[in-house]
Design a protein around this nucleic acid. Structure first.
Length: 293
DNA sequence: ACCCTCACCTGCACGC
DNA sequence: TGCGTGCAGGTGAGGG
């Protein structure tokens, strides 16, 4: 389910409950989640670690861990580099976290259970088993495959108009495909890629390199707008780690989609019927009139 | 270097 | 009711 805004909401929810907790043990119920060293090695490494922070990079969740016995403010920076490690989690399509008391029954598809030092359990669930979990030394995070190739964060200065111009100019792919490439543009998924192109009045099948400078500007703005709209409290996914689903939807959430999942409905701008086309197994939604070119 | 297709899983909504 | 099909908010390996 998650694109960048949803991952950010999960990160914030996790931060509220697990920071400063110590992990007493990890129970791996789906062994393929921690290859190749296996369950025992993973558990040995993570046992006793203190959770000192939760961050996001693209759609990855980064849980910072520290082995040090005592964590004081003054020492945090040093220990972080010395003995720290990072638990990297990607939710892919159906990954979810739950935060449970000891009494609550494990949900279906509970693949990893972290036992915390406050009588709670942090559970990673994933129906489709696409989710990925990896433990790396803090010092190697930036070199980790999947992380180091990522494009700049969409709200950072590095994701500039010139950056986007440069990326688009050098690509012969369709804009929709390019927007899904996390090494080129970070954070969009299948929903927000369609939404950003709609907002910018640009045809999803247009070849990236052929976009005019002016329209690159519109797209750049649209990318940031769809993401920040989805991040704002009024219109986003409500993450509730104690809810049976791990989240619930704000009532306005799906209403903010202008084209996604609206095949056949009238376009909000011009009333033409929204179209859908699949290629590469993924649906693209667009308005054939106001996204003509 | 780029770009495409398929593979990875389970479940659900749909039509016959 | 049952079964087949297509689809699901993501990526990575492997091939051309």
């Amino acid at each position: 389910m998650p694109e960048l805004p949803e991952v950010e909401h999960v990160v914030r929810a996790l931060r509220r409950v697990i920071v400063r907790r110590r992990i007493l043990a990890a129970e791996i119920r789906l062994p393929k989640l921690v290859p190749p060293e296996g369950k025992a090695a993973f558990n040995r490494k993570i046992k006793g670690c203190r959770i000192i922070g939760v961050r996001r990079r693209g759609k990855f969740i980064l849980i910072d861990l520290d082995r040090a016995r005592m964590l004081s403010h003054g020492r945090a920076a040093r220990t972080r580099q010395g003995s720290g490690s990072v638990l990297i989690v990607h939710l892919r399509m159906t990954g979810k976290f739950r935060y449970l008391t000891v009494d609550e029954e494990l949900p279906r598809y509970a693949h990893v259970v972290f036992y915390l030092d406050n009588n709670r359990r942090l559970v990673f669930c994933d129906q489709r088993q696409f989710g990925v979990m990896k433990l790396v030394p803090y010092s190697r995070l930036g070199l980790t495959k999947g992380i180091h190739e990522l494009a700049p964060e969409p709200f950072s200065d590095d994701f500039s108009l010139n950056y986007l111009k440069d990326v688009l100019t050098r690509s012969q792919r369709s804009l929709k495909t390019l927007l899904l490439d996390q090494t080129k543009v970070l954070g969009l998924g299948n929903i927000y890629a369609s939404e950003a192109l709609f907002r910018a009045h640009i045809n999803p099948f247009k070849i990236a390199a052929t976009l005019s400078a002016k329209r690159v500007g519109l797209l750049h703005q649209a990318i940031r707008e769809v993401l920040s709209d989805a991040l704002s409290d009024g219109s986003a996914l409500r993450v509730n780690l104690e809810h049976p689903e791990g989240f619930s939807y704000g009532e306005a959430f799906e209403d903010i989609w202008q084209v996604y999942d609206r095949e056949g409905e009238p376009c909000a701008r011009c009333s033409a019927k929204i179209k859908r086309e699949t290629h590469g197994g993924r649906s693209t939604y667009w308005c054939p009139r106001c996204q003509r070119a």
